[in-house]
């Protein structure tokens, strides 16, 4: 089926090219560009979990990190955390010091004397359960996924431990569990949520700095919290649609 060069006129070529270009434009009009969601686009029905953390209330006791390790059998060593607390200290000469000794479980020490501190605060970190999660999109075997409730979860029987998702997460919320050889991460205590219990970190927080809830439910405590406080997410420029909202988040936090 060679092209008949003799009979292929300029007029014919322009006709074909024009109709092809017109077709592309037409298709793009009836099916316009959509945001990439790892799973279905949220429709506004059912649960759609989000989390809010009030930095104004976090006292840095590390109860959340401790409770998470117990509840989810996370390896009891530094570097393996599903959630952890960071202490930010900004000195008068504009140095930003971040420390998280054993994720905050062992308590914090202020590294600079009080008169040199410009600003200091605790930032609890955990999985952002992004609506457009970069981690679930890179999984080559479909072991990382977003549940219908909007939680990024891992199917450990199918995870091959390649670590792509660990690199893809811009918030550093995943780790490879050396005992299982698979990836592990915060599930927002999915097993507890489905049984009507609060996630372990929310339960353990003594000051109520952590709030979770259904973003589709306009009556929920989370919805009210986001409405009443000036909340921000981490790394909004990455367009991950993070669902972890911080009240009173300083720009220095990354």
């Amino acid at each position: 089926m060679a092209i008949d060069k003799e009979n292929f006129s300029r007029r014919e070529f322009l006709k074909h090219a024009g109709s092809f270009a017109g077709g592309v434009v037409f298709v793009s009009l009836i099916n316009p560009f959509k945001f990439v969601f790892a799973t279905k686009e949220p429709k506004g029905t059912g649960k759609w979990y989000g989390v809010a953390i009030d930095i104004e209330k976090c006292i840095g006791c590390g109860s959340c990190a401790r409770a998470c390790k117990v509840e989810n059998d996370v390896i009891n060593e530094p570097f393996f955390f599903r959630n952890w607390v960071e202490q930010y200290t900004i000195t008068n000469d504009e140095q930003i010091l971040v420390s998280s000794p054993n994720g905050g479980i062992d308590g914090f020490k202020q590294p600079v004397p009080e008169e040199e501190i410009y600003k200091t605060f605790f930032v609890p970190k955990m999985c952002n359960h992004c609506a457009k999660s970069p981690c679930t999109q890179v999984c080559p075997v479909g072991a990382s996924f977003e549940s219908p409730e909007g939680l990024a979860l891992v199917d450990i029987t199918y995870c091959i431990g390649c670590g792509y998702c660990v690199q893809a997460c811009p918030y550093g919320c995943r780790y490879i569990d050396p005992t299982k050889g698979t990836v592990d991460k915060c599930t927002l205590c999915y097993h507890r949520l489905q049984q009507g219990l609060d996630p372990a970190c929310m339960m353990a927080c003594p000051t109520g700095a952590r709030i979770y809830g259904d973003l589709n439910d306009k009556e929920s405590a989370l919805y009210a919290f986001i409405k009443e406080h000036n909340c921000a997410v981490l790394k909004p420029q990455l367009n991950t649609s993070s669902k972890l909202y911080y009240n009173d988040l300083s720009q220095e936090v990354h």
Binding site: V70, F145, S147, Y158, H191, A200, M203
Partner: peptide, 22 residues
């Protein structure tokens, strides 16, 4: 069942025993 992943994985995660009671 729900998306490009094993639907049973959700049920397996739910089977985990909660350690903190109320």
């Amino acid at each position: 069942e729900y998306g490009p992943y094993r639907g049973n994985a959700l049920k397996e995660i739910v089977n985990q025993v909660p350690k903190f009671v109320q």
